[in-house]
């Protein structure tokens, strides 16, 4: 008879024992991210995860893009925001389908939130889905949402050593947009330096300089977008 609970010892084991786990801590998030990715691929949707510090210009870039490319491409947007619906309202004003995820205290979006949002949003086939992540260069780096490409945005008011301070984000992105170039004359920011720093972390990172205010460089961003939509593997 078992000394712990008096059973006959056949139903369960007692005492200290080792359980081999060997499981990735982000396994659950990664699984759901792969499911989202499958959803996007099946519908030929180009999903882009936009990450930056607060105020770098993610929403402004989206407003410009959605307005300028209206009629040329189909878009929809998921807005991640800790508190307000301001950003979603700004997107809505461009006439684009948008859904808002309020993360509350959460400092990043995760794949489950996206999967949830997709159910209500029902994005069109062959469209571009922008996901504006929570303004934060640390946490969103670890959470795959199922996006095709991750786009990191930095503005010239932030300091050209930013890539070195937040290497994970630059490591995991494929495109870096340097925004607010209209302010270059007024700030001590070197485009060469920021490029050099970013490429130290990610040799394959593509870099585009833009100003959402005066429109400089936006054509290059639009060409990049169109090239991704027309890429043979997504057709």
């Amino acid at each position: 008879m078992c000394a712990t609970c008096g059973c006959d010892g056949q139903d369960h084991v007692h005492g200290k024992r080792i359980v081999d786990v060997e499981q990735d801590i982000l396994h659950q998030n990664n699984l759901l991210a792969e499911r989202n990715r499958g959803y996007f691929e099946a519908k030929n949707i180009l999903a882009l995860n936009l990450v930056s510090s607060p105020g770098s210009g993610k929403t402004t870039l989206l407003e410009r893009t959605l307005t300028d490319l209206k009629g040329q491409l189909d878009f929809c947007v998921i807005e991640g925001d800790q508190q307000t619906t301001n950003d979603a309202d700004r997107i809505h004003a461009t006439g684009t389908k948008v859904t808002q995820i309020n993360t509350g205290k959460g400092c990043h979006l995760d794949s489950q939130m996206i999967s949830h949002a997709l159910q209500g949003l029902k994005p069109k086939e062959n469209s571009i889905m922008f996901i504006e992540n929570v303004g934060n260069l640390v946490c969103p780096a670890m959470f795959d949402l199922g996006e095709k490409e991750r786009v990191v945005i930095i503005s010239v008011t932030e300091g050209d050593d930013k890539p070195l301070k937040y290497p994970d984000m630059f490591f995991s992105s494929t495109l870096c947009i340097v925004n607010k170039t209209d302010l270059l004359p007024y700030v001590p920011f070197s485009i060469e330096k920021v490029k050099e720093n970013a490429l130290k972390i990610n040799k394959d990172l593509h870099i585009i300089e833009v100003s959402c205010t005066n429109g400089d460089g936006l054509q290059e961003w639009y060409s990049w977008l169109k090239s991704k939509v027309l890429a043979p593997e997504t057709v």
């Binding site: 200290k16 024992r17 080792i18 359980v19 081999d20 786990v21 060997e22 499981q23 990735d24 801590i25 982000l26 890539p163 070195l164 290497p167 994970d168 490591f171 720093n197 490429l199 130290k200 972390i201 040799k203």
Partner: peptide, 27 residues
Amino acid sequence: LYDPCPVCGGHFLNIKNGKELKVKSLV
């Protein structure tokens, strides 16, 4: 992530180790 190669000083690197995030075992 931005440390250079000690031989050539380049950044053409592949990360081989150090990104692990795992629960290995329990008692």
